[in-house]
Structures are given as C-alpha cells and as structure tokens.
C-alpha cells in the first residue's frame, strides 16, 4: 500500500469494495423478498434460488479462477500468484459448503429428501467439492515452500480444467430432477431475471471482498514472519560473531548491556542456537 496517499484517498481505495458489496447484498435481499414474484409451483420456497444458484456459480468460477492464477504462478514463479490461487480455492470451498447446505435445505423442502444420489448435478458438485477438499492436505503435506507452491499450482490447474468439463457433462445427462432454469432466457420472467442478476453480482462482489481480505491477511503474515526472522538474526549477530571467531576483538561496552547480552545468550541457548560456556 502506498503510504504517501492521503488518508481519505486511502480509505476510499480500500473501503469502496466492502461498501459496494454491502449495498449490493442489501439490494439483492430487498429484490428477492419484496420485488421478485412468487414462483407458481414452489411458491415462497423458490426464494432459496436467489441464494443457492449465484453461490454455486461463484464457487465454480472461483475454482477456475484459482486454476488461472496457478497458471500465472507457474509462468512467473511469483509467490503472490500462488497465495492468490490458494485463497481463491479456499474461498470457493467456503462458498461451496454454503451451496451444499442451502441446496440440501431446498431439496428437503421441494423434494422431501436432503440429497438425491442419482441426480447428476448434485453428485458432480459433490465430486468437485471432494476433489478440492484434497487440495489443502496435499499442499501442506509438502514442507519445502517452493515445491509446495508448484505442486499446488499443478493441482489447481488440473482440477480447474475438470470443473467446466464436469458441468458440460452434467448438462448432457438425460434424466434429472434438478431444474435447468438458466438453459434458456425464457425460463425466468423479467423481475426474477433482474433479481437473479443482482444477486449474482452481489455474491460475486462478496467473493471478491473476502478474497482480497484473506490475500491481505496472508501477505501480512508472510511479511511479519520475515520481520521476525530478521529480528532474530539481528539479535543473534552480535553474539555469534565473537563465538565464531574467538580472536576477534570483543567489545564489552557496559555492565548493563553485558547483562542484556548474557540474558539474550541464555534465551538463545534455551532454543539450542548457542552453547553457553
């Protein structure tokens, strides 16, 4: 972040996205409950549509976005793309859990069952979710940071390519109970279509806001760890130099600082980094 920016400009730069997201979500909720007409067959239960479907679309797009960022990481080897890809997939997993739960609630109300196992749309989404559930264990099973990022990127690209393929195959499936509302523009009347578009925009913005927040938290943690390492190295440097070269001139400036040095040396010895004579 540019520290030379004036505070109002900085606030505007960082706050516009969360504020727009909050406004859009409020608009989407208002349109859902006060503007969109009741659906003839499902009635009020169909209001879940404006939550469940946009969340599902954003989730799947997020997985693909994670794959695209992984391509950028493999091409450039820049850590920031790896972090962004990881966060995109993490956010999609959280949204995906929401999709599964809201979908199950809708299915229970509409079909009388929490889950229908021979429905291709439900099963394919579950398979995609289970596939991505292996992403984090795979990633954190590798200790070497560079190798971890590389393998995670390969996974993200492969799985990201699987997502659209799975959806295309599902649409070709002949038998289903899951409705195909978005297969034709005529399926949704104009007020329902407008509400759906606003809800889709609202949840896309929510995804973007949370994604940016987590990326910033992750990058801040990386910087903090780097600072902590640097501070530790600096704390060790004046102690290690005389220990490493006994012939070098040893400056003992005062009793107070000598006490502090011996205290620091004791701390380092406790961590096993120096040997107290």
């Amino acid at each position: 972040m540019d520290s030379t920016q004036k505070p109002p400009a900085r606030l505007l730069r960082t706050a516009w996205l969360p504020v727009t997201t909050a406004l859009m979500i409020a608009a989407a909720l208002a349109l859902t409950f006060f503007y969109a007409p009741l659906e003839a067959q499902e009635g009020f239960l169909q209001k879940i549509f404006y939550l469940h479907v946009p969340l599902a679309i954003v989730t799947l797009c997020g997985f693909v976005y994670g794959g695209l960022l992984a391509i950028a990481h493999l091409r450039t080897r820049e850590v920031r793309y790896d972090v962004r890809s990881y966060v995109a997939i993490h956010m999609s997993l959280i949204f995906g859990v929401c999709v599964l739960i809201t979908g199950s609630i809708w299915a229970k109300g509409s079909w009388g069952h929490w889950w229908v196992w021979n429905e291709p749309t439900l099963d394919s989404f579950l398979i995609i979710m289970l596939l991505y559930c292996t992403y984090q264990p795979l990633r954190f099973a590798i200790e070497d940071r560079e190798r971890q990022a590389r393998y995670a990127s390969v996974f993200a690209i492969t799985a990201g390519a699987f997502v659209p393929m799975a959806m295309i195959v599902v649409r070709l499936a002949p038998q289903y109970v899951h409705p195909r509302v978005l297969s034709s523009a005529n399926n949704l009347p104009a007020p329902m279509g407008a509400t759906f578009v606003v809800a889709l925009l609202a949840f896309s913005l929510l995804y973007a806001t949370l994604w940016r927040l987590e990326v910033r938290v992750k990058l801040a943690r990386f910087r903090l760890r780097a600072l902590q390492r640097l501070a530790l190295e600096r704390a060790q440097a004046p102690l290690r130099a005389p220990l490493a070269s006994p012939g070098a001139p040893l400056l003992v400036p005062s009793t107070a600082s000598a006490d502090r040095s011996s205290g620091r040396r004791r701390q380092l010895a406790e961590r096993g980094e120096v040997i107290v004579p």
Partner: peptide, 19 residues
C-alpha cells in the same frame, strides 16, 4: 402445488441464516 408459507418460510430462513 407450492408449500404453504409457514412451512416454506422455515426452509428459506434456514438457508439464508446458514449462509
């Protein structure tokens, strides 16, 4: 036919609250 509002409302509220 559609579920009555009392029944459907619970499902809708549950979905939105969970999310």
């Amino acid at each position: 036919p559609a579920l009555p509002l009392g029944t459907a409302g619970r499902y809708v509220a549950a979905a939105y609250i969970v999310a």
